[in-house]
């Protein structure tokens, strides 16, 4: 039977209908709570937490601006919030770079093993996910503290006399974040390398390219999608990270996640917390849009 194009269209229409239960769940579960957050950010703080049903843009004003506590006439940019925001973005960027630099050789190592062994290595990469994040973070603390594993070992070997203070520093936070998010970089990189045609590398050598030249002009362009996907996967959770900076950083300097938590907890300013959460969401979406653009450009180039 020759298929009538109209009929096919109709069938597709029905298929689309089959997705409605999933769509309803998505709309209710994803946009519903989001709408509540947006709504809350335009209300006034309630007594002892919660919100009062009075429209107010004060929360949004306070995300970026501040009235001096001791001189209310004096309105300036809210440096405290911007400092926290900047720290979150900067720390996430550093985490992403560290993961990329360490993740690339790791993924390369796995991709160049014989096929049978690769599964084992990949499996090993996923092992940390078996344990709760909080427990892994406390384990790192156990390694880094003054009388922790590293300092004890170094002192025992006579390398140092005094323990090196590592806990509660930016180094500790970076180490913890890089460790936690490393698999999210390695896996997409590996996926990109797995699809790579290694004959191109050989062709490069045949044409007298140096090792560096092959890496720069052949391998890196080919695994670029993996880098982009990995960077997004690392950057987005890093920017909202809460536990790792709190436990390893000693809680002296807030990240965006801690600032939001403060508003819903001891600060008792839910609207401000909601507005800050929206800011976090906007940063995340911006990062995602940039990623999609980069991927599209990549595909256009390949097609064209």
């Amino acid at each position: 039977m020759a298929s009538d194009p109209n009929q096919t269209e109709e069938r597709h229409g029905w298929k689309w209908l089959l997705a409605t239960p999933a769509l309803i769940v998505l709309v209710l579960a994803a946009s519903g709570p989001l709408m509540i957050v947006v709504l809350y950010s335009f209300l006034s703080p309630g007594n002892m937490g919660g919100v009062a049903w009075e429209f107010s843009t004060d929360a949004w004003f306070r995300v970026f601006m501040r009235r001096d506590i001791f001189d209310p006439e004096n309105v300036t940019v809210n440096q405290a919030h911007l400092a926290v925001l900047w720290r979150s973005v900067w720390l996430s960027a550093q985490t992403t770079v560290i993961c990329a630099v360490l993740g690339f050789p790791t993924a390369w190592f796995i991709a160049t093993r014989p096929p049978g062994q690769r599964t084992v290595w990949l499996f090993l990469i996923t092992i940390p996910f078996w344990t709760n994040l909080l427990i892994r973070t406390f384990a790192i603390q156990e390694m880094l503290r003054n009388n922790g594993t590293i300092n004890t070992a170094l002192m025992w070997m006579g390398v140092i006399n005094e323990p090196i203070p590592m806990m509660f520093t930016d180094f500790a936070v970076l180490l913890g974040m890089a460790y936690v998010f490393m698999p999210l970089m390695v896996l997409p990189l590996y996926a990109a390398m797995d699809k790579m045609d290694f004959r191109l590398v050989e062709a490069g050598y045949d044409l007298y390219a140096s090792r560096i030249a092959v890496l720069r002009h052949v391998i890196l362009p080919l695994v670029k999608p993996g880098f982009i996907a990995g960077s997004i996967l690392v950057f987005i959770p890093s920017i909202g990270a809460y536990v790792t900076p709190r436990v390893l950083g000693g809680g002296q300097k807030m990240m965006l996640g801690n600032l939001i938590a403060l508003q819903f907890g001891q600060g008792r300013n839910w609207p401000l917390g909601a507005a800050l959460a929206m800011v976090l969401l906007i940063i995340t979406v911006t990062a995602l849009v940039l990623y999609l653009r980069a991927v599209n450009r990549q595909e256009d180039k390949r097609d064209g």
Binding site: R66, A80, V84, Q252, G267
Partner: peptide, 19 residues
């Protein structure tokens, strides 16, 4: 538990401290 205005004042100082 301080009134909202006072709590707000305290949490602004707190944010400044932890920025």
């Amino acid at each position: 538990a301080c009134p909202q205005a006072v709590n707000d004042l305290q949490s602004q100082i707190w944010t400044e401290l932890l920025q």
